[in-house]
Amino acid sequence: MSLFSIVLRELAEIRAMASSKKLITRDEWEKKLSNVKVRKEDMNKLVMNFLVTEGYVEAAEKFRLESGTEPDIDLATITDRMAVKKAVQSGNVEDAIEKVNDLNPEILDTNPQLFFHLQQQRLIELIRNGKVEEALEFAQEELAPRGEENQSFLEELERTVALLAFEDVSNCPVGELLDISQRLKTASEVNAAILTSQSHEKDPKLPSLLKMLLWAQNQLDEKATYPRINDLATAMLEDPPV
């Protein structure tokens, strides 16, 4: 967060100056930038945080060896988490549920919404595979009681069962449930819950830092002309159009 406060201070200074746009040359800008001290360890931590949160376990291991940055979480748990995520992404929801329960039985017991979404995904997979009878039985035995406990679950359940009513599911109003994006949504929900249970942030810090950078540049655009980062992938400073 220290980077952010530096940006804010700069902004405040500039705002205080003049009402007309100020021109900042590349030299001045680079001088200012080099005055900002960011510790290498902090940068490494940011990278490690990204690798760990996103589940790049091999890269995290390599990075640990090369940079000496210790991850704030046991890397073995990443493998487990990724296995759960992958199981949901490939439609093996039952397998995913068992894996989560092995990891920490409290997660699904204390998180009714997540549990419902996983069961819903199981139902979707059954429907996708044309197992109509099994799907109906599963909906009635496993999902209907959850719907009785919670109004919004009931609505979601009704939407899902509606899939069975259509001949051509790819072309029906609730067809998006069969979309791969639905699997990804469920997978990321499980991923986040596991991370939270491990007291880890569910989102990596790096993307929000980049968002903050863009926001700060936009704020600054109103006050000054300066060398801007337009392509985040290269992070090149581009001179302002004169």
Binding site: I97, E98, N101, L108, D109, P145, E149
Partner: peptide, 13 residues
């Protein structure tokens, strides 16, 4: 035992 565990977790009924 594992089956039992996986059946009851999250499922009050």
């Amino acid at each position: 035992l594992r089956d039992l565990k996986n059946q009851i977790i999250g499922n009050r009924t």
